[in-house]
Design a protein around this nucleic acid. Structure first.
Lengths: 361, 361
DNA sequence: TTGAAAGCGCTAACAT
DNA sequence: ATGTTAGCGCTTTCAA
């Protein structure tokens, strides 16, 4: 009788996983007395397998404590289940909220978020991007503009959906879910102008070499433009300290501004953190907010609601933004996106009026 | 002449990557006129390759915009370069700081952090863990205790270094880098007792089904124990609201506590966020801090330094904690850890005295 | 210093 | 409903 080829339906005498090695699909198939494909099906599409067989396989999986190796699966299926997310920092409640929302939206489809953050550093951004792409994400979500030419090229070459968030660039790379930081600035300026102020200032960050807060700068630009349009001086607009902007930025830059222009009536800070810091500094200096000085911020951070007086702020729902972005990713990857054209979602923004700004006397 | 087997040194007539497909190592090897192995070496250990060859290969890589596929590499080398991190939430500055520190420490060795968060949910924790393990991380870093039996078994079966952080359990699974939440509670209580208070309260979270803040509860336990040891009543210790604990927790639970026990003199909140919320609530109610009520927190969050009065808090350096954990991971994975015994690092804690607590009258 | 063979653990595509 | 074949894109190991 002719020697038959060893069939794929695993026989016990085949090389057995021994010792501490983690069980493979092969071990499971052997124990259950089926082929590897059947095991694979039980895992990915159980309905394709007869209940009885399914049971046996499931038992084998449980008994062995088998956990599939996604790296191998990715290689074979050409689907990694990764979605990449690039942020300037995670140490910012709003970016963390974006990550949170994204994760929630992606959980159901078993996508895994690969998070990278650049600390606002352009060189780091490029390094991170390369690392990310080596993991073959199926889509990439990123904040605002990619700055370096090489980074842009790498992104495009990856040939996966690119979703920009937390900014609405004039010339998006592809898909966008976000809001216009430029309009944030203009809206803030308009709001203060409408309250009757004329000596209006702003607190923003300065650029320091490769460290740059692009979105914050957009807000500053919008703010200045709106002042100019209204025929007001941009003299009280201050760029001070390097990103990331936090509480002490507000305290310190307010000090600088007051030193320079004690007559300023109202201030917009590029971030609520900075605005809160400014309010606290006012408390210390005996400057009444809003009676002596009106202050508003951006981001509508939780802390802004808690301080006294509560902070007027430009509100953007970042968690929702993350979820919308996640939805976009899912649509794109499932092919549900009927139209082939780019997604563009503006989640908008609104002024949340609280007590830190009043009308000019 | 006998037909020779097609050599591995890629010939042009071999199946060519066409169209939009991403270039593989094969394309690079072909363009550079070397074997795939040589390309691989240029990438992983350039010194093994002759400078001239190296140049040619590098040029080919650049020209094609080749980015290696780590999934394939992982499969072959059995090293994924992933380190898993499990957190309750990312929307907490201290956990974000841990992630930040870890990333920094791991960057140099090109490890990639796989972050998962459970939202304090035990069922989600298990799901997340399974997902994580399918990516074959080389080590796993997690906060505090794993609660479900299945989760524990999965972890152990993974047979990779396990580093617990942000708590020092009495019976660690393996390695620990952290501090004792129980001691945080005891230290806080002792601090207030030493200031001469006797009607001492605490603000913590309640457990709600599968949603539990284990570490916070440890702090509460320590706090109560220390009160008891001092012969004081634990009557003012309040568990209220479910995790995650934030600002409004402090405002609300303070209201509840004051309603119940208006005579409370000093309060410890399980989190600075809660403590800050409580201070703000006091401002609103016209309760002077610390003259009418002393308040201290835990975590030494940035915001605590900014409010008026600045918040006394138990300080733990979470970013450093993350970095130490990262260092531990690197040592473990590089085999640099000479001893085979578990790593146990206590990063300690300290009371940061500011103005929100005074001595009892 | 470089190359060839073998295979990592899975799944797509095609049988049966 | 289940099995077989043939890789996915790399690296390990050994040979030259």
């Amino acid at each position: 009788m002719a020697r038959t080829v060893q069939p794929d339906m695993e026989k016990a005498e085949n090389r057995t996983s021994q010792g501490k090695q983690r069980p493979t699909i092969r071990d499971v198939s052997r124990l259950a007395g089926v082929s590897r494909m059947t095991v694979s099906r039980v895992l990915s599409d159980p309905d394709l397998v007869l209940p009885a067989t399914r049971e046996r396989v499931s038992k084998a999986i449980a008994d062995l404590g088998y956990v599939p190796d996604r790296a191998a699966g990715s290689l074979a299926s050409r689907r990694t289940g990764f979605v990449a997310l690039m942020l300037p920092t995670l140490t910012n409640a709003n970016f963390a909220a974006v990550a949170h929302g994204l994760t929630e939206a992606l959980r159901e489809d078993d996508y895994h978020l690969l998070i990278a953050y650049t600390d606002y550093d352009l060189v780091e951004e490029e390094r991170q991007l390369r690392n990310l792409l080596a993991r073959r994400p199926e889509a990439i979500v990123l904040t605002g503009t990619i700055h370096r030419r090489t980074a842009s090229r790498m992104l495009l070459a990856a040939d996966i959906p690119i979703i920009e968030i937390a900014d609405l660039p004039s010339r998006p790379i592809e898909h966008v879910v976000g809001f216009s930081n430029y309009n944030v600035g203009r809206t803030a300026a308009r709001y203060l102008i409408n309250r009757g102020f004329s000596r209006i200032g702003a607190l923003g960050g300065a650029t320091d070499g490769d460290v740059i807060d692009h979105r914050g700068e957009e807000r500053m630009r919008g703010f200045e433009d709106e002042l100019r349009i209204a025929g007001l001086s941009t003299h009280h607009v201050l760029r001070h300290g390097k990103p990331p902007i936090s509480y002490d930025h507000g305290a310190q830059s307010l000090a600088v501004l007051l030193d320079r222009d004690p007559d300023v009536e109202a201030i917009f800070a590029v971030s609520d953190l900075s605005a809160v810091g400014a309010v606290m500094e006012c408390q210390r200096r005996g400057i009444a907010v809003p009676d002596d000085l009106s202050i508003m911020g951006f981001g509508d951070f939780e802390i802004g609601r808690e301080i006294n007086p509560p902070l007027t702020s430009i509100h953007v729902d970042f968690r929702a933004l993350g979820q919308r972005a996640g939805q976009a990713v899912r649509d794109l990857l499932s092919g549900k996106e009927t139209a082939r054209r780019p997604i563009a979602v503006d989640v908008g923004l609104s002024v949340t009026e609280r007590a830190s700004v009043k009308a000019a006397p």
